[in-house]
Design a protein around this nucleic acid. Structure first.
Length: 296
DNA sequence: AACGACACCTGGAGGC
DNA sequence: TGCCTCCAGGTGTCGT
């Protein structure tokens, strides 16, 4: 599910709510042990319980929780995961049910009912991981190992100032692969997934199957700017909640209301009115405007 | 090295 | 209503 803006929105929500709190216990609901990937439940608890959360940050689509005991928890929400934080008088029971939450409360939203892992925090707060499809992962590493791993595994962050349009063009020149799967490749550039890829390519007027090395300098520049623009807008609007994503308070993001391309096949292009088409690229549904985004 | 196919899970939507 | 098939925002692995 979540791409960079959703992860960033989550991180910002967690920063103001859970930093400074200690982890008192970790519960796994039902048959969800595999979400704790690096360690089994007992070993994971033994490492994190008693430690204080000192910082929350993001690298690529990972949520990074630094702990006071030189360990770091790395959470990946994959397709349908999201993190929720309880406020006063709200509670998740050990079987994943909400208490003190009305159906009309954002936390009462049906998409917030798939609680798989619960962190009990000091002060009576809870951090709950809801994930319908159970694809999400929660790992813990020693902090230096975590930082090294996160640094090496992923490509540049889209907002990194060192990622100039010249450098981006250079990166594209060495790849013959189609541009859409390339910008979704996290080792090429971090944070772009299917929604923001479609949006960026539409904005930059580039056909998703264009071989990367055929992009002209002006197109590379336009694409990098488009990626930055759509990601920034996604963050401003609290992410895209097409289906499963929710903010830590349970609310939906609003970027879905302003999508120009993603999932709009059969509807007119907002720029030229041509009916938008759907194709499959790299096994992913892809929507584009056949008039604005011409194949080279 | 690069690319495609598939697996991992579960629920919702749409067709018949 | 009930059953069936398809679809989903991501990524790891395995095969060619």
């Amino acid at each position: 599910m979540p791409e960079l803006p959703e992860v960033q929105t989550t991180v910002e929500g967690l920063k103001t709510t859970i930093v400074g709190h200690a982890i008192e216990n970790v519960r796994v609901v039902g048959n969800s042990q595999k979400i704790l990937r690096s360690h089994d439940h007992g070993a994971f608890s033994a490492i994190v319980v008693g430690a204080k959360i000192t910082n929350v940050s993001r690298r690529a689509k990972n949520i990074v929780l630094d702990l006071s005991n030189v360990h770091t928890i790395v959470i990946h929400m994959r397709m349908s995961g999201h993190l929720l934080v309880t406020s006063d008088k709200q509670r998740v029971t050990s079987d994943g049910k909400w208490e003190g939450v009305a159906k009309t409360d954002p936390l009462g939203d049906p998409k917030n009912q798939f609680i798989r892992v619960i962190f009990g925090l000091s002060g009576g707060k809870q951090l709950a991981f809801s994930d319908l499809r159970k694809f999400g992962t929660i790992d813990v590493y020693k902090t230096d190992a975590a930082k090294k791993h996160l640094q090496e595994k992923y490509g540049p962050e889209p907002f990194d100032k060192k990622l100039t349009s010249e450098r981006f063009l250079q990166m594209l020149k060495s790849k013959k692969t189609a541009i859409k799967p390339l910008i979704m490749d996290q080792s090429f550039i971090a944070g772009v997934g299917n929604i923001y890829a479609d949006e960026s390519l539409w904005r930059a007027k580039i056909h998703p199957l264009t071989p990367a090395n055929l992009l002209a300098s002006a197109q590379a520049k336009a694409l990098l700017e488009a990626i930055r623009t759509v990601l920034k807008k996604g963050i401003t609007l609290g992410g895209t909640s097409i289906d499963d994503y929710r903010q830590p308070n349970g609310q939906k993001g609003r970027f879905g209301e302003v999508l120009k391309a993603y999932s709009r096949h059969g509807q007119p292009c907002p720029r030229c009115g041509t009916i938008m088409q759907r194709i499959v690229v790299g096994q992913r549904g892809t929507t584009f405007c056949p008039h604005c985004q011409k194949r080279p």
